[in-house]
Design a protein around this nucleic acid. Structure first.
Lengths: 203, 203
DNA sequence: TTTATTTCGGAATGATTGGTCCGGAATGAA
DNA sequence: TTCATTCCGGACCAATCATTCCGAAATAAA
């Protein structure tokens, strides 16, 4: 209704803020503290817009969380695709991905981990919408890893003794583990050990 | 102060409930909904004791959470030791552990995952006490896996090409990944793939 | 400039939060 | 039975929660 009149009729006052810029800030807040312990007051303070602008623009807390998760997701998969599309041997691509991810995790003093993993643990089991987002995202990531691995197998860069989709699932699982472990440690040696051994499965 | 007088002087009315039994129920509640979205009211309702009994016996919410986490931890490590102490080839022990853990995860319709992992993700980054519990527990588990693996290496059941502590870290990381993945799926095939490949690192 | 419309700051909402308190019931020791 | 002590149901508290609402300011089209 409102959107209809908005589209047909005149535009009045314009927003004082950039919608995406503020959403990016919401990502950071939810990412840092999670869904339940980020209050609307935290958001009002952190986003720099008023309560009513917040509700007018993004709907209620839950719908803002969904938007933030979507924003993070597309940002993250963008970065991963960037590495995935490099013209490198498949094994190098996987290794670079793992090292990129752990590098980012270790760099973060706040131990935010991965927003998607955090959401998967904290909210997915009680929230059908989030759960489905996570699942869909998981399938996309599995597909992306599968392609890289399959190509590697065709070029004999990666072992053909194992199923490509099993290898994809295994690598993704390793990443998830790393993202949890990073929540309470920043000992690089641990991650180096894990990556080295996970990579050995591809041989 | 209170404990002192309690020890020296007479005992009066006894508690109407079993302290450990109620604590076990608290574990289930926190395990299911996490710290932040389990309210004291939820606990009062779920534990079946009154608000004042709750505070008298376990202190405030945070201290009850710590006690619940400790309870879960000792229960879990008990079960793991039970398997770890079996007189089986080391590789079989690891495999049985992985299968036991995934079996329990898959059996749980509520997708509670692992309480320790949930806490590591949800609370550890903002809670020094929980963070240290998680770290200490992680070291103990690493030590336990290390021993099993080391023994396996000495018997040539497990590859000597890799460092035993690296292998321990790797296996634990795989378990953590599985515990996250189980939060939003119960497709056994995924876990079978992961376990098979993780086990292959020990060859 | 007028007018219709939107934005937005901040007050106000009722519900829920974690935590305290009181008074009667229960209970072990004397 | 008395008495000192503890237990516990439930009322109560201030603070915080997510959300709504109102009126003034802003703005694009007429």
């Amino acid at each position: 209704m409102l959107n209809l009149s908005k589209a047909i009729c005149v535009m009045a006052r314009t927003k004082d803020f950039d919608e995406n810029e503020v959403l990016a800030r919401a990502v950071d807040l939810f990412w840092l503290k999670g869904y339940n312990s980020t209050s609307m007051q935290d958001l009002v303070d952190g986003l720099g817009i008023s309560r009513s602008s917040l509700y007018d623009t993004y709907g209620d807390k839950h719908s803002l969380f969904i938007k933030a998760l979507e924003c993070y997701q597309s940002r993250a998969s963008g970065k991963l695709c960037q590495i995935g599309n490099k013209t490198l041997p498949a094994k190098e691509v996987i290794k670079e991905l793992l090292e990129f991810i752990t590098g980012e995790l270790l760099q973060d003093q706040k131990h935010k981990g991965c927003f998607l993993v955090n959401a998967e643990v904290e909210v997915a089991p009680h929230d059908e919408e989030v759960s489905q987002m996570i699942c869909k995202n998981g399938q996309q990531i599995e597909e992306a890893f599968y392609k890289v691995i399959k190509k590697g197998q065709d070029n004999d860069e990666i072992t053909n003794k194992q199923d490509a989709s099993a290898l994809a699932r295994f690598i993704i699982n390793t990443v998830k583990g790393i993202q949890v472990t990073a929540k309470s440690t920043n000992d690089k040696a641990i991650f180096d050990d894990i990556i080295k051994l996970a990579m050995s499965v591809l041989d």
